[in-house]
Amino acid sequence: MYKIVKNEKLNEIIYSMWIEAPEVALSVQPGQFIILMITEKGERIPLTVADFNRERGLIRIVFQIVGKTSEELSTLEEGDELYSFIGPLGKKTEIENYGTVITVGGGTGIACIHSIARALKEAGNKVISIIGARNKDLIIMEEELKRVSSELIITTDDGSYGRKGFVTQALKEILDKDQAVKKVWTIGPAIMMKVTCETTKPYPVETIVSLNSVMVDGTGMCGSCRVSVGGETKFVCTDGPEFDGHLVDWEEFMNRLNRYKEQEKKSWEIYQKQVHTCKFVGGIK
């Protein structure tokens, strides 16, 4: 069993959790992911590792409530245990001293981009970070990202914080004025990564994305996560999760992300109904 040592609510929908998994913490590298199950009846969900502490044997994940499993996970408290937790899975980020690089994060991707930005900075890169969200409340880890970036640009769709607009506008401006940018990493919702790749396409800048496919085992057994990259079928779990975003077949990827939308919705509705009933009964007592 894998003990939760901290569960922190970052905003209305995003949580940060530290979990005890000493073996995983010893070998994990930035860019890799884990798969967890809450209970024996649960599903196996992949989450990119947001941070780790080798000395204390801890792994940090940052997740957003998008369905039953993530909502159930958000309710767990310090001392609770997870039924299953495996990792580190996938390939690590290729960290080198490239010169100037940009990391672009959205949603929980901000947490993942943070550990990559930190590793890039430690390798000697000049790291410019751009993070975006719908509004001020949904921006996470601003201080942490500031520490590992030479420059941090924040955008919100509604202009309630930082610059009004999307991350891609800020990205385009930098690419236009700074010819030295060698590489871009972008992690966030599929649509954001897709649009970011469209933005960088006209520039001679390699753009790396971290794909969050639907997975089951996460070790190359099932192929649930397969995606076309440059016309070839790749497994996100073992060939990725990072790929050259300009080569990803985004339409296919986004279709496959929605394979179980109906069932996921049903499962979440049933869960919420149960939780409500419990709360109601609790109230009467």
């Binding site: 599903e43 196996r44 039953k68 089951v216 996921e264 049903k266 499962s267």
Partner: peptide, 8 residues
Amino acid sequence: SFPEYDTP
């Protein structure tokens, strides 16, 4: 056994 089990 979905939805008793979460995997669809």
